[in-house]
């Protein structure tokens, strides 16, 4: 999406629209169909250019949340979640570039894949957080516990998201979280990934502050933590 879309003089402010729930529904459907053009059209037709955060909060995030709920219920596939997040990330990046002063309100958030090299989960969460207007430092994948702790302490990260796919890596988050909390007790750590989905007790066992079942749930947790940090 280019900037001219957001400066369209006929744009409507979403909350004033009586068709708002239908719009979210329509956006969800175009995203699930991986229809980039349709998605951009909806944003162009219904978002007011001078209030991108209103657009994000009232239209984009609710649509992504519906998709996230669908994934948790087994009705939506991971590939649809990924493509939806990527499409929304591109749109929001055009609405609020990294240099936009409003991005600086974001807390210091970082994301990483600990030890293993399966990056899809991280990428989805990263896209959804970006689509939610957050600035996120991406530490990449395959990090050792020491590398992760060093990076987080150096950057004084306030909210850290750790993604894992393999059980062994998920168990190692305990060591990483302990190392981080020792240096930065106020840092909030959210974990996610298959081992945490299959064992609902695991996130507590490793000492995390929260677990995200789906990327959009993670966004909600980050929002909540943002108010606290």
């Amino acid at each position: 999406m280019n900037d001219s879309i957001m400066s369209d003089p006929v744009l409507q402010k979403i909350p004033e629209s009586p068709h708002f729930p239908l719009l979210v529904d329509e956006l969800e459907h175009t995203l699930l169909a991986v229809d980039q053009i349709g998605t951009k059209r909806i944003i162009r037709d219904h978002c007011k250019s001078d209030s991108p955060f209103t657009c994000i909060e009232t239209l984009i995030v609710p649509a992504l949340e519906e998709i996230g709920r669908g994934w948790e219920e087994g009705k939506v596939s991971l590939s649809q979640v990924y493509m939806s997040g990527r499409i929304c990330e591109t749109i929001v990046d055009a609405m609020i570039p990294d240099t936009d002063p409003s991005r600086s309100n974001s807390p210091r958030v970082a994301i990483a894949v600990l030890e293993d090299h399966h990056t899809l989960g991280k990428r989805i969460v990263y896209s959804v957080l970006r689509a939610g207007g957050y600035t996120v430092t991406d530490y990449g994948h395959g990090l050792t516990v020491d590398q992760l702790v060093t990076n987080v302490v150096r950057d004084r990260i306030q909210i850290l998201l750790i993604s894992t796919l393999m059980l062994a890596a998920a168990l190692r988050t305990r060591e990483a979280i302990a190392g981080i909390k020792k240096e930065l007790p106020g840092t909030q750590v959210i974990v996610g990934g298959a081992p945490f989905l299959f064992d609902p007790e695991l996130w507590k066992e490793v000492g995390a502050d929260a677990m995200g079942h789906a990327a959009t749930e993670t966004l909600e947790i980050v929002k909540r933590m943002t108010a606290e940090v």
Binding site: S79, Y82, T119, L120, R123
Partner: peptide
Amino acid sequence: MGYEAYIELMY
């Protein structure tokens, strides 16, 4: 090729 690149390839 990595999962993300593969999904993009499919679509």
